[in-house]
Amino acid sequence: MRLVIHYLIGLVFGTGIAISGMMDPAKVANFFDVAGSWDPSLAFVMGGAVLVAFFGYRLVLKRPAPVIDTQFHLPLSTKIDGRLVAGAAIFGVGWGITGLCPGGAIPALGTGRVDVLVFFVMMAAGIWLGRQYTHRRTLLATRRAS
């Protein structure tokens, strides 16, 4: 039953992505191409999503706990460090090259296109590499501290 509900929540997300244009690299690239074939549509995606999430989170987080867990799992870190900025900057370069971000590419797999699958597999490899890299850095930092 839980898995069915998770599937349905994923489906709402994927349907939103599919109709919004976020999974279409041409639309993504045109949003950023103010100097060329500009298409401002994606501002409406972000606007709609943040609007609902902003007010929705305020209602939900007033509750003592989520439905199936004893607590909300919110990121605790507020530290703005080089890793955050470098990671975001690197992500932007990849998003600019391909027009695909993780939230767009995963639903785009549903179109059955091979080029999307290639992107997805390489992105998964990049996530694995990133985990190895951050893990090693953390190990080194702990070793230095002890």
């Binding site: 470098a86 090259i97 597999v121 490899a125 990049g126």
Partner: peptide, 13 residues
Amino acid sequence: GGVIVGFGVTLGS
């Protein structure tokens, strides 16, 4: 680009 995206989003959380 896929590798760059995957690496960047992991580093940038």
